[in-house]
Simulated assay, not measured.
Amino acid sequence: MIRRNPWVGLRIPSLFASDEAWRAGHRAAVLPLVCSAAVNIVLAVLALTVLPPTPRSVLLWVALIVLLAGTIIGAIVGARAANGIPVA
């Protein structure tokens, strides 16, 4: 696991409260981030290999929205998990 740092990871103040909050927040955010990335990969492969150009651009926009939604949901879940950790 990556330790608390200013460059890599979710950039949410509650995750910077402690090392425990950093770990708990990122551990909680893994599922939504991985699920949206997996859906995104499937959509991108379909768009780049199967579909003609017009639906392809729509599908790529949907893939972008899915990726952003997964990131936002992961950030919310991670912040909630980090807020549940008492600050020493």
Rank of each mutant, 00 (worst) to 15 (best):
L10F: 11
P55S: 04
I85K: 00
I72W: 13
V62F: 04
L10T: 01
L48W: 12
L33A: 14
W7H: 13
P86N: 00
R11N: 15
R80I: 09
A75S: 12
A29P: 06
G9W: 03
W7L: 14
R11I: 08
G9C: 01
W7I: 11
A79H: 08
A37Y: 02
P55V: 02
P86F: 04
A17C: 08
L51C: 05
I65Q: 00
A69M: 04
W22E: 03
T54G: 09
T54A: 13
A37F: 10
S18M: 04
N83E: 15
L68S: 06
P13I: 00
P32C: 01
A37M: 08
V50P: 01
R11Q: 15
S57E: 14
I72T: 12
A17P: 05
N83A: 14
L46H: 00
P6N: 01
V42Y: 08
L68D: 02
G9R: 02
V87M: 10
V50D: 10
L33I: 10
S57Y: 14
I76R: 14
A47M: 07
D19Y: 02
I72F: 13
S14H: 08
I76S: 03
A28E: 08
I73E: 09
L51H: 04
C35A: 15
A75Y: 02
I12Y: 01
L59P: 03
R56N: 09
A69S: 11
A44G: 10
T49E: 09
V39S: 08
W61H: 10
R4Q: 13
R23Y: 13
I76M: 13
L48C: 09
I41K: 04
G25C: 00
N5E: 06
A69F: 07
N83M: 13
A21R: 03
P6A: 09
A63C: 10
L48Y: 13
V8L: 14
T49R: 06
S57C: 02
V62Y: 00
L48S: 11
A81V: 07
M1Y: 12
G70A: 02
I76P: 03
S18D: 06
I76T: 11
V34R: 05
A81H: 03
A88E: 15
A75R: 07
A24Y: 03
V30S: 06
I2F: 13
E20A: 15
V58F: 13
A75F: 00
L33G: 13
A37D: 03
W22L: 04
E20D: 15
V8M: 10
L31Q: 12
I65H: 00
N40Y: 05
P13L: 05
V30C: 06
M1P: 13
L59Q: 05
P32N: 01
C35Q: 11
I2W: 12
L59N: 01
R3K: 13
T49S: 10
A63E: 06
W61Q: 10
A47N: 09
V42I: 15
A29L: 06
T71D: 06
A29M: 06
T49M: 07
L48E: 11
T49Y: 06
V39G: 06
I85Y: 05
V39A: 15
